[in-house]
C-alpha cells in the first residue's frame, strides 16, 4: 500500500492516468449495474420472495409431504455453496442437454437461494403472530387464505422487514458471483477493464465503492419502510 501510494505521489503522470481510467470506467461500470446488477437483484428478490412464502406455508402446513419437500429444499440450498449451485446450473446442466443463458441461469440460482433463506425468516414471522389473530379472522367467517392474506401476512411482513432487508442487501453483493457464469454485470466489467490496463486495485476499489453506495441507499430505504410499518404499534 505504502509503495503504491509513494509510486503515485512520485509520478504525477500516473495520477492523471488513474483519474482518467477511474472516470472513463465509471460509465461502463454503472451501465453494468443498471443493465444487470440491479435488474438481477430485483427480479431475483421478487421470485425468491414468492418462493419463500410458498416454502414457509408448506413448512407450517399440516400436509406431511409438503413439509418434507420444503425441508429438503431449504436444507440442500443452505447446505451447498452458492457458487457451486450457479456452476451446476450454468456449466453442469448443459452436459445433460439443458442449456440456459447466463442471465436466466443467474436468476434461477439466486432465486432458489433467496427462496430458501427468506422462507425461514417468513416462517418465523408467521409463527410470531399470536394464534388469537388467526382465530379472530376465522371467527368473522374468513377462510384460511383470506385470514393469511388480510390479517397474518401484513403483520408478519412488519416483523420480517429487518431480516429480509439483510437478505436483500446480501443479494446485491452476491450478484457479483454471476460474473463467474459470464453475466456481464458490474463486477465482470471491472474485471474486463482491469485486464486491459492492469489497474486492478483502482478498478476493484471503484466497483466496491459503487456496491457500498447502492447498499447505503438501500439501508436508508429500509429505515423509512420500517418507520412506515411501525405506525400501528406504539
Amino acid at each position: 500500500m505504502k509503495m503504491f501510494l509513494n509510486s503515485i505521489i512520485a509520478d504525477p503522470e500516473r495520477v492523471s492516468r488513474l483519474i482518467d481510467i477511474a472516470q472513463s470506467s465509471l460509465q461502463p461500470l454503472l451501465k453494468g449495474a443498471i443493465l444487470y446488477t440491479i435488474p438481477l437483484t430485483l427480479i431475483t428478490f421478487v421470485c425468491g420472495l414468492i418462493l419463500a412464502v410458498l416454502t414457509a406455508l408448506a413448512r407450517i402446513s399440516s400436509v406431511k409431504p409438503l413439509q418434507i419437500i420444503a425441508r429438503i429444499y431449504v436444507s440442500a440450498i443452505r447446505g451447498t455453496p452458492l457458487l457451486v449451485q450457479l456452476f451446476i446450473i450454468f456449466y453442469g446442466l448443459p452436459t445433460i442437454g439443458v442449456v440456459i443463458d447466463p442471465f436466466p441461469s443467474a436468476v434461477i440460482g439466486f432465486s432458489l437461494n433467496v427462496g430458501a433463506y427468506a422462507s425461514e425468516i417468513i416462517r418465523a414471522a408467521i409463527l410470531s403472530i399470536p394464534k388469537g389473530q388467526w382465530e379472530a379472522g376465522y371467527s368473522i367467517g374468513m377462510s384460511y387464505p383470506q385470514t393469511l392474506k388480510r390479517i397474518i401476512l401484513p403483520q408478519a411482513s412488519r416483523v420480517s422487514l429487518p431480516p429480509l432487508s439483510n437478505t436483500f442487501i446480501s443479494l446485491v453483493k452476491d450478484t457479483s458471483l454471476a460474473a463467474m457464469i459470464l453475466v456481464t454485470e458490474m463486477f465482470r466489467r471491472a474485471q474486463e477493464i482491469a485486464a486491459t490496463n492492469y489497474e486492478f486495485l483502482l478498478l476493484y476499489l471503484e466497483v466496491a465503492l459503487i456496491y457500498w453506495v447502492i447498499c447505503f441507499i438501500l439501508s436508508i430505504v429500509q429505515g423509512r419502510l420500517e418507520k412506515r410499518m411501525d405506525r400501528f404499534v406504539s
Binding site: G132, E135, A136, Y138, S139, G141, P154
Partner: peptide, 21 residues
Amino acid sequence: IPPFRRLTGMVFQSYNLFPHM
C-alpha cells in the same frame, strides 16, 4: 365450517383486534 361460523359472533377475552387496522 366458515358459513356455520358466521351464525355466531365471537368476543375474545384478549380482544384479538387486528393491530394493523
